[in-house]
Design a protein around this nucleic acid. Structure first.
Length: 637
RNA sequence: GCGCCCGUAGCUCAGCAGGAUAGAGCGGCGGUUUCCUAAACCGCAGGUCAGGGGUUCGAAUCCUCUCGGGCGUACCA
């Protein structure tokens, strides 16, 4: 029951126990030139004419036109609810839908419109629709669903920000995985993203590991004990906490060591450098396995002094007050927050101080359009204060800062507690899930090479772990379910990967050129029927989209069509779960199609070739969607 | 006390800039393999969307109150 300060940092102490800022520029401000948009603009024009014909002139420019999925294919392929028109035209939506159905003249690839209750439902020329879709996905100028890089502003994205006194656990994995996914997502939306982290490498918690090592380490090293550096150091942290429960003087000794550290005591500094080196090398290994990388690594040991200077300068400018005991405080009560200490009475820095320094340095270094912090929801208040203090200090860019908060990960039996070793260790989890996937692979491929097995089991295991964490909305806490997190069935990463491998299997069998789209058909939006054919080289059947158009194929096509919109929306709301859900829908829709419709053995070569194009388009979306989540799409499982 | 978040099927979660009978997965029950990998597919059962008020033609979705749960409210991080 030693107070809360056992491990101070970006990651909150191991205890016992915003949003109105202006958005950065809209990630999809420009026209997304894909089928989805073509359909809407085509429909909008036709709608305007039909309204004029049936009801006289009306201004529809403010109307947000959305074409929605119908409850079932019998009532149409897409639906338009006439509710917003009802107000404008002062008629019932039902009457409007009926009148418009009679008056509207739709462009390709629409085929027909009918009033179904308050909805104006649309039937597609399915072959034309699917052909145009495949062309968009397979023959676009850039990866489907992404915007040109650098089209939008630069964003500095902080995530991970570990303590160097212990190894990372499942909670850190959620942070790391979210950070990487957000980086990919923002990049896909056209931002330039600078991935940064802040290593919390100084403070009393670090000294605790050091003290324990000094007393009980006996000269051991990670090498001599064959222990990964971060685990090695973490063991001494746990040791300290155990011993401190019986010996109260240890806490005081840790504080004394911190004072010596701040004075630059050579012996302490040397030990600190050695032990931090061990930890960081251990982290590098974990990051490598997780697929995490940074463009710039900040260390708190470098930035905390800078924060102190900023606080003192602000004091000089009257932004804060010096208390009688010498501490420096800022009063935020006028803005509905509390008072906040920025420098302790002994002049040392607190958590807030170093974050001020880090933020200012970071902004000067990158001149970004926005700075995002991926940090757990328990620090919402901290960031509220941080941003407000920056603003008070005159940094106008403070309003471009955003805390991307997310819920905690806890165990079925409660919170994870590093001090008590009650954690799901990151490295252990990866190893365990890899073993499980490896076993499944060996059953299917007894003769697989060791290298191939290692690569595949890793991709699948990480797919399972990452998807498990990303398929939940940010704000929700996650209860770690050991069985569900290592499961490869149902709504999981491997389920999606599997769908992808099935397509790869078909494409392998069909040959390299099968299902590709000839480039001469590029982008003549909705040109009448599919001159869009499979690539000519020898003997590859020409895709005959005219034979395509089952309910399953259209349902799949509609999901593929929505992908760019989903990417933009996910980036705008900074919500990787949106991508996860959609990719899952695509995978499910594909497997349904796949089971009901033979591709290679299709009724005719032309139909088979058209289905191959659809398969290829699906694979592209699955792979791209998974990539945004930081998940690999293996070709075989 | 005050602030923020969460409360949807037995379990884990989608859906929430209001709109067509509330969707998945797991678990349960019943089917599918001479056919492109069954890590799959199909079907059945299962919900007064925590509860009360309100706004609206229409509310799981917006407002308000209540009840549960979590987090925060340090000269810890």
């Amino acid at each position: 029951m030693h107070g809360a300060g056992c491990c101070p940092c970006r990651e909150p102490p191991d205890r016992d126990n915003g949003a109105s800022v202006p958005e950065p520029r809209c990630p999809f401000a420009g026209v997304v030139h894909v089928l989805d948009q073509d359909l809407i603009s085509g429909f909008r024009a036709a709608l305007a004419e039909a309204v004029a014909t049936a009801f006289g002139e009306a201004d529809l420019s403010a109307l947000d036109i959305r074409l929605v999925e119908t409850p079932n294919p019998e009532v149409g392929d897409l639906g338009f609810g006439c509710f917003p028109l009802a107000k404008l035209l002062r008629r019932s939506p039902k009457d409007i839908a009926a009148a418009l159905a009679a008056a509207i003249e739709l462009p390709a690839p629409f085929r027909e419109a009918r009033g179904v209750g308050p909805y104006l439902n649309l039937w597609l020329d399915r072959p034309a629709f699917l052909a145009a879709l495949c062309r968009d996905v397979l023959d676009g100028e850039r990866p489907y669903g992404t915007r040109p890089p650098g089209e939008l502003g630069r964003i500095v994205l902080e995530f991970s920000s570990p303590n160097t006194n212990k190894p990372q656990h499942l909670g850190h994995i959620r942070n790391n995985v979210l950070g990487m996914a957000l980086a990919r997502l923002l990049e896909a939306a056209g931002h330039e993203v600078v991935k940064v982290t802040l290593v919390n490498d100084r403070g009393v918690h670090i000294c605790k590991s050091m003290l324990a090592y000094q007393r009980w380490g006996d000269g051991a090293t990670p090498e001599s004990t064959g222990t990964k550096g971060d685990h090695f150091v973490g063991d001494y942290y746990v040791k300290f906490c155990q011993e401190a429960a019986a010996d109260e003087s240890l806490e005081e000794q840790a504080k004394e060591m911190l004072r010596r550290w701040e004075q630059g005591d050579e012996e302490v500094m040397a030990l600190w450098r050695t032990m931090n080196g061990w930890v960081e090398r251990g982290f590098d290994e974990t990051y490598r396995r997780l697929g995490v990388a940074f463009d710039r690594v900040y260390h708190e040991s470098e930035t905390y002094r800078f924060g102190r200077d900023i606080a003192l300068a602000a004091l000089g400018q009257g932004h804060c007050q010096r208390l009688p005991d010498g501490a420096v405080e800022i009063d935020l009560t006028a803005d509905g927050l509390d008072k906040k200490i920025l420098l302790r009475r002994d002049g040392t820095s607190v958590y807030m101080t170093q974050d001020l320094g880090t933020a200012v340095r970071r902004f000067e270094e990158w001149q970004p359009e926005a700075m995002f912090y991926v940090v757990g929801s328990e620090q919402i208040y901290h960031f509220k204060v941080l941003f407000l203090v920056l603003q008070r200090f005159g940094y106008a860019w403070a309003e471009q800062c955003r805390h991307i908060s997310y819920g905690m990960v806890h165990l079925p039996e409660g919170k994870m507690k590093s001090r008590e070793g009650k954690v799901v260790d990151a490295d252990d989890l990866m190893t365990e899930v890899e073993a499980i996937s490896g076993q499944a692979i060996r059953e299917k491929h007894p003769d697989i090479s060791a290298d191939e097995l290692a690569a595949r089991q890793h991709e699948i295991a990480l797919g399972a772990i990452k998807f498990f964490l990303l398929n939940v909305n940010l704000e929700k806490d996650i209860t770690f379910d050991p069985a569900a997190s290592v499961s490869f069935e149902g709504d999981t990463g491997p389920y999606i990967q599997y769908a992808h491998t099935r397509i790869c299997g078909i494409l392998r069998k069909a040959g390299p050129a099968a299902g590709t789209i000839a480039s001469q058909t590029r982008r003549q939006p909705l040109s009448p029927l599919p001159r869009c054919n499979a690539n000519p080289p020898h003997a590859v059947p020409v895709a005959d989209f005219a034979q395509l158009g089952s309910d399953d194929e259209v349902a799949l096509g509609r999901l593929l069509m929505e992908f760019p919109k989903v990417v933009a929306e996910a980036a705008r709301t900074r919500n990787p779960a949106r991508i996860a859900g959609h990719v899952l829908d695509v995978a499910r829709s594909f497997t349904t199609f796949y089971h009901g419709h033979p591709v290679i053995q299709a009724a005719s070569p032309g139909l088979g070739a058209a289905r191959l194009a659809l398969c290829r388009a699906t694979a592209a979306v699955l792979k791209q969607g998974l990539a945004l989540l930081g998940i690999e799409a293996p070709e075989q499982m």
